[in-house]
Every structure is written in C-alpha cells, then in structure tokens.
Amino acid sequence: MRRSWRMLLFFAGAAGIVCLFTLAAEPISQPRDVRNRYATAIISETFSQRNITDAVSAVNFDFRGFDTVGEEFILFVSVLGSLVLLRMVEDRKGKVLRDALEPWRDVGPSDAIRLWILAMIAPKVTFGIYIVTHGQLTPGGGFQGGVILATAALILYLGEGFTVFRDVISHPATEIVEGAGALGFVVIGMLAWVWGQPFLTNVLPLGKAHELTSGGTMALISISTGLEVAAGFILLLYAFLQENLSPVEET
C-alpha cells in the first residue's frame, strides 16, 4: 500500500475514533453507581470475606484470579518467545565473545560506584521481597515486587559488566524458577479441587487481618507470581545483553 493512501486511511479512522469517543465520554464528576456495582461489591466484601486490606490485590489474586492466570501465561510465553528468538546464532558458537561495552568499561565505573552498587543489591532484594509478600496488606504484590527483584540483577550488570552478571545469574536455575513460578499459580489454584471446590477457590485459612499470613492462597499466589516475574525479567535481560556480545579476533 502506498504511504499516502495509508495516511489517508489513518486520518479517516482517527476522525471516526475522535467522534465516537467524544460521544461516549462523560464527565468523571457524574455519579456512576450503576456501572460501578462490581467495584462497590469488591470494596465492601474485600475485608469482610477475605480478611485483607488491599482491594487491588484481592481482585488480582482472588476475585479475578482466573484472569491473572491468563495474564501470567502471556508473560511466560512472551519471555519464552524472546528467548527462542534470541538464541545464540550458529556463527557465534565457539568464538570468544566480548561485551560491546567492554572498551568503555575499561575507563568505566569507578571503585566507589561499584562498591555502592554492590551495597545496593541487598536492600533492593529485601525491598523486592517485602513488596511481594505484603501485597495483601498494602499496595504491592507479585507483579510489582518481581520487577523490583529483577532490577537487583540489572544493577549488578551496570556495576560489574556482563561476565559477572552471567556468572551470578546461573541460567538453568533462573529458568527453573520462572517455570516453577508459573506452575505454582496453577498448582495453588488446583489445590481447591482437593476440597471439591472450583479452580482457584481460596481454600486456605484466611488468617488474621492486618497480618502477613492473612488472605489464604493470595499470599502464596503473590509469591509465585513474584518469582515468575523476577526470573522472567532476568532471563530477558540476559537474552538482550547477550545480543550485545560480539565475536573478537584471537590475539
């Protein structure tokens, strides 16, 4: 298709979208009790039925848990697809590979920066675990905490370069954790079958409100999601950083 025709098509479509959207939009100050019935139900039942204080996590890991399984597998398949596509190509096998940023690294981070980055890793991991495990109490949960955990690996690369990053991120282990995280969600969901309940029913004791153990299966699902997200992002980092490597001539 010619580019001018494509632009014409775009502007026609854009005009249509703007028209329909303008008709559909309404001021947010209007009361919308009818459309918000579902939200109102979630807000009033989260605490009384599940003993937890974060309604967003309740939607994610319990009330709408089945959808989250789907989302998690989108993540899983995306990571898998990226890894398959970025497999080391044949002509680079058996050659000495060097980080393309390595020459820059020779004059790169000073010892002070490297020390600071290493010192930051433990607090980052702790903070990530905190966010993953407190999803049912305060804003947080597996998705957010998992990303924070993955950044701990990223700053390791920033400070120490690819070789150290690769040595620390033991590849098979990370893959196993990623798969286990995705599987864990489904296994926790199937746990309900033991009690003769539908998939993903919250069958575990709900615990005491405002405590770490509240929420039954939600805490476990949050942790398994966190593991999967963290490991998935680390695998992606590994795959893309590996693309940065280029074969060097033997000297």
Partner: peptide
C-alpha cells in the same frame, strides 16, 4: 485508594479497584 489501612474503615467508599 482502596487500601483499608491507616484509618480508612474497611468497606468504606473508595476508587474502583478493578
């Protein structure tokens, strides 16, 4: 926000969590 800590009574009105 629909986070029922820090004095927000559980079940009181909040923005849409979904």
């Amino acid at each position: 926000a629909p986070i029922f800590t820090d004095g927000l009574k559980p079940g009181s009105a909040a923005v849409d969590p979904i």
